[in-house]
Nucleic acid binder design. Structure first.
Lengths: 200, 200
DNA sequence: AGCTTCTTACTAACCGATCAATCAATTCCG
DNA sequence: CGGAATTGATTGATCGGTTAGTAAGAAGCT
């Protein structure tokens, strides 16, 4: 009953995910090897294989882990006021990414492998649908409350996500984090033009 | 004088570029090996190394080759009417990409390696600046001719490129080519709202 | 004692790159 | 003109290195 330390059964798993995270930021996805993950883990490569049969299994688990963290981060936007909530969501999607440039690059690498790794594609699509759902919902709420003009919430959400992904890709590829802040202003312009175009 | 065949000095180079292009579309950048390029080339791997010292050299040459083709394609937009020219440029950037999905994916892979391969980053930045110059110029021309409303051409061009890159990333990652056409409509909306907002 | 966890040592496959050797075409020279 | 020398292009074999994954047994915990 002395479960005080409460090192849960999958305690090692959590540490391996963290080690993978560090190795990924340090070496990038293309140069992410089991050896390097093991080095961060502080144990042998075989120890990794004890917990995860194949590298693919580990990577799939890691993608689950990292996207769950992302969802958790975006989930703590609790404001219900539609205009404020949309602002905060876009901040999470664009502004917060500035502090994690290495991760931004690595995630772009992983995303570029989606067409070749079905597990990746599936998980990225699911995440995409979740974000789209959040955006569509807040927009629809705003329309229902009358603070947003009548608009096609689905299309507006898609447009915003395209801008978000464009900014992330450009920030990573051009090694220019200011792309994110610039895109944040574009989303504001877009929101103002399409959702706040009141003819009062 | 009988230079009829005219197999130019760098004839082999051209064929290797084409072989690389085929191998890239077929296997993707991550799985692009000299062996696979040689297979497409129809000769041995050593034959590749005879023409290009290292794999990096070959890849740098290929990126030059493929981006030169892109520039050539975008260059044949000769219309001078600003509104029409902007439309055609955006068509080249978004609509035409639909026919080359495999290349779209591979180019995203290569772009994601820009932070690790300075030669890539440099070349991608140069290409980016060229596209930005084209867009800025056509917008400034339109403003000068009075067909576009007064606007910050640099910022509008950046916004359009963010949308373009977002659509390309999403089309590749989500394996959904319709993202491109959808983004094309967003650019139209954006152009209408920022450049054609005449209060006649 | 017995189960979980881990290490050491290993394999098989693949990678980019290098090597000497070969062949065909071209150039040089008497 | 014609043989000799040179050059460009290519092959097959191989090298050193790295990869993911495996096998067998030791350590440690309960």
């Amino acid at each position: 009953m002395v479960d005080a330390p409460e090192r849960s059964v999958s305690d090692a798993d959590e540490e391996i995910m963290r080690a993978t995270y560090r190795a990924l930021r340090e070496h990038g996805y293309a140069d992410l090897t089991i050896k390097r993950i093991a080095a961060e883990y502080g144990k042998s490569t075989a120890a990794i294989h004890y917990h995860y049969e194949t590298k693919d299994d580990l990577l799939a688990a890691f993608l689950e882990y990292i996207l769950d963290r992302f969802v958790a981060a975006i989930h703590d936007v609790e404001t219900t006021d539609p205009e404020r909530r949309l602002d905060l969501l876009l901040d999470k999607l664009l502004v917060d990414a500035e502090d994690h440039y290495d991760l931004l690059v690595a995630m772009l690498e992983m995303r570029s492998q989606a067409p070749y790794k079905e597990a990746f594609g599936e998980r990225f699509r699911r995440n995409d649908e979740y974000v789209r759902y959040l955006l569509r919902t807040v927009i629809d709420d705003g329309i229902a409350e009358g603070v947003f003009a009548d608009a096609d919430a689905e299309r507006v959400a898609s447009a915003l996500m395209t801008i978000v992904d464009g900014a992330r890709t450009r920030a990573a590829v051009l090694e220019d984090p200011t792309e994110l802040a610039a895109a944040r202003r574009v989303t504001d312009e877009y929101v103002t033009a399409t959702l706040l175009a009141d003819e009062s």
